[in-house]
Every structure is written in C-alpha cells, then in structure tokens.
Simulated assay, not measured.
Amino acid sequence: MRITPFATGNPKRTFNPNPSTRARPNMTLAERAVRSLAAMKPNPQPPLLRLRHPLVLMHGFGVLAAFGRGGMLHEQAMHLRKRGVWAFAPNVSPYHTVSARADQWGARLTHILRETDADQVHLVAHSMGGLDARFLVSRRGWAERVATLTTVSTPHRGTSAADFVMEQPDRLIALLAAAAEWLGRQILPDDDASDFTRAVRELRPAHVQGTFNPATPDAPSVDYRSYAGRAGRGTDVPINPFFRLLNHVIYEREGVNDGYVATESARWGDFRGALDADHARQVGLAAGGLRRVPAADAFYRTLAQDLADEEDDRR
C-alpha cells in the first residue's frame, strides 16, 4: 500500500462548520471582501479528537529535527493538543544505545502516566524510537501499560546507513562520535552518557536481525502497526539533499528507502503503508530544517483519529 500524497489526511473527515460563509453567486464586491476578511463561523474550532489514553510521540536518532522546535516531535504534539489530544513528545538522548534510551523513555512515560492519571499510553515512534519502544515493551516490563505501538520508518531489520558509517576510517568515526556526543550534551543538558559508536553499531542490519529481534519478541497484549517512507532513488518523490548520499547507498544495498531506512525494513506488525516522504519530512522538516511540512501535522492527526475510532469500536 502506498499513501499518496503524504499526510493529507482522510478527505472524508473534512470539517466545514459553516458552508454559508462561502461566496455566493451575484454577491457584490463589498460583500465578497467582507466575507473573505471577517466572516465568522458558528463553530470555528476544529473537532476534538477524544482518545482514552495519552498519545506519546517518540523521536529517533540524531538532533536534526530539534533545532528551534523544542524537541524532535514537539510541534506535532502541540498540534495534537490543539485538537484535544493528550499528546506528549518527551526528549531522550539523541546519540545513545537502545537500552539506555529505553530506560530514559521509561522515566518519561512514568511521569506522563502520573500527570494524566492514565493506566496506558499509545506510542507513536519515529525511526530508532520504534526500536526503543519495542525494547521498552518487551524487555522493560511495559507491555501492560502500552495499548498500541505505531512505528514510522523504524529500522526493524536495521539500516545499511549504519553499515556505511562504520565502514569509514576509524579517525573519521571518532571525530563524528565526538561531535555528535558534544552536540547531544548541549541540546539535552542532562545527557552525560551518550555513546554514538555503540548506538550506530546497534542499528546495523546484522545486529538488529541477529541479536535485537530474537531477544525482543512482540508482546501479545500490544497492538503493533507500522508505516514506511519512500523518496529519492527508485521513486518519483523528491528527497532532502541532506539524505541524498545515504539514499543512494541504501538503495544499492536494500532498495527503495527514505534516505535513512529501507521501506522493507520498516514493516512490522500491521503494515499500514508507505509515506511519500523522506526521513525528515516525516517529522515535519524540509529544506535542511528551515521549512516546516504541514502535511506531517495532518499525518499524525490522522493517526490520532484512527486510534480514537478504534477505541470507539472497542467500547
């Protein structure tokens, strides 16, 4: 299944609270001007999305999406809050191992459950955040407190981008690690134990498929679903120049990808489709992080609506 265009939402859910504000035939120029500038709607606010459980957005590896945004997925969480969703987007170490990040997520989720007095959460995890979430559920005892886990472009079978990084000269890897860990400490001041090199090794296909997946079985009580991304080579979807090199590398080794994760690697549980978006656009960024992608807000809003609809069906 291919989702095209990216994150436009379900057209059946279009909300038009007051069609009478549209211009009518034979209106005077003055009437049209006033209507276009100052017409009020009886119910101008968008409909509320009523979720029984809080929705937690979990970010992935790196800090690209954090600059000027308060966090990787902070803006998407605030967009959902405007729709009435108890949405949260905590931040954890951007350059640490899955187990270390999972422990940090556990602390963040405990705080959220206390704040909301909820007994479960919905997790929506982007990229490496999906591996963190699976580890948290399977190996940190969170299965009973997680209602659903939706992953978006998570490398469930690893990513050859990690192989490519680890194939570089040791000196270059050391420089990358030092720079990444320094940057991580500045962005998240209480992050004093990043481990860039180990984190990258844990994203290699051999490790994810040979070690992580066998040791991290799905919890029967948790509903797993996933989305992939596609852009660049092998598609007609443009890709952020930042990802162009990795897009070519991954395409040669794994096929169609979003610049960081192969489309096939992102499949897990109930596969919901592929987004026509590169890895950055999936979290609302384009043009090197200088321009927002409103379609990402619509995508996460649609996810929340789907979860709300499913909760209603179970009642």
Rank of each mutant, 00 (worst) to 15 (best):
R139A: 09
R134E: 07
H156C: 04
L203Y: 07
L113S: 01
Y95W: 10
V124Q: 06
R198Q: 13
D192Y: 13
G106D: 06
T151M: 12
N91D: 15
I187W: 09
F196Q: 04
F135M: 14
H111R: 14
G210N: 10
Q209G: 10
R204G: 08
T150M: 05
A179E: 13
R140T: 01
A178S: 13
V85N: 04
V146K: 00
A143W: 05
V165R: 11
V200C: 01
L175H: 08
G106A: 13
M166D: 08
T197G: 04
V121F: 03
W105Y: 13
A143F: 00
T97Y: 09
M128C: 06
G210M: 07
A162L: 09
S99C: 07
V165A: 13
P94W: 10
S153K: 02
V137R: 08
R108D: 09
Q209L: 14
A143T: 02
T211R: 14
R157T: 13
T154F: 11
P155R: 01
R204T: 15
D103I: 11
A180I: 00
R198V: 09
A161C: 10
Y95M: 02
D195G: 00
P169D: 07
E181H: 04
E144W: 05
L109N: 04
V137K: 04
A125W: 09
R157D: 14
R108A: 11
Q76S: 07
L149G: 02
S127F: 00
A206V: 11
T116E: 04
R83T: 04
F88K: 03
A100H: 13
A107N: 12
L123P: 03
A206S: 12
H96M: 03
P189E: 01
G184M: 08
A174N: 11
R185G: 12
G106H: 08
P205E: 02
A89L: 07
T116R: 02
Q76W: 06
M128L: 13
D119S: 10
V98W: 07
Q209P: 08
L203T: 01
R201I: 05
P169A: 03
V98C: 05
S194I: 01
E144Q: 14
T148V: 09
V137E: 08
N91G: 14
